[in-house]
Amino acid sequence: MIAALEIILRLAGWLVLAPLLPGIINKVKAWVAGRRGPPVLQLYFDLARLWRKSVVLSTLASPGFVAGPAIAWVAIAGAALLLPLGPAGAVVGFRGDVLLLIYLLALARFGTAWAALETGSAFEGMGSAREVSYAVLAEAALITAVLSLSVHSGSITLETMLTPAAGPGAVLLAGGLFTVLLAENCRVPFDDPNTHLELTMIHEAMILDHSGPPLAVILHGAAVKLLLFAVLLTEAVLPVGAMPPLAGTGALLAGVLAVTVGVGVVESLLARLAFRRVPLLLTTAFLLCLFALLVAWKGGPA
């Protein structure tokens, strides 16, 4: 009973806090550019507005057009629930849960890509082709990062893997995971969430035809995914799980905030890469994670 209650509370926490992050990023971008920018809570307003709107469906769309985003959202929320939260640990954890996390993110990708391809639009085809192709390299980097964490901690349970964090390879891992975060969440320099030129987009191109509640679900899922990666990155670098409760919680929040601000700063200072350069950057991320793995291997079990 208490476990169920905790699961519900945590889920609520994830779902409610997530839309803050894009707001913070936008605030940072505005601040760097010397503008006032939209309010931090802008995404909440957008979501509420979209939730009340009616839906325009493409004449070609099958029920999968709506089911895809829903399943992607469930997958992301499920993946978030698997993550331990610093000193509070994880509510659902078992040996090998880290693989479930990775494959749930893949399921979310499948759901969005499928829904995008429902409409038969070339733009959406382009977007999902890019999404699933770049994911190949991002996935290699991510699984190498996981491997290095598990080598360092001698475990494949998220909770015990993340408690000692990455140790000596932390800097390398932070670089690699941050790049994966940018790629997986479609931020600059991989994708530009603000652009209005469909030819150059990835994520935004995939959701061109979505509207109303399904669009709200997609945007909210993307925000939760960003928060998930921010938490994962923080916990992989800082041993928040091993700290005393108050310090751990503070460190976790500070870490997530730092990652978010970092995304905003990167977005303000860099331009989007040409598409043919994207694989190079992702390969760099993979190599960073690979070196982190070698460092962890040399360092022996923690």
Partner: peptide, 27 residues
């Protein structure tokens, strides 16, 4: 179960707010 439930709930929500069929937007 969660996937099926959320998908159906979302479908219902969309129907509740009204669904219009239109051409694929295609810019």
């Amino acid at each position: 179960l969660a996937g099926v439930t959320v998908a159906m709930a979302l479908w219902e929500r969309g129907r509740h707010r009204g669904v219009r069929r239109a051409l694929t937007w295609d810019c």
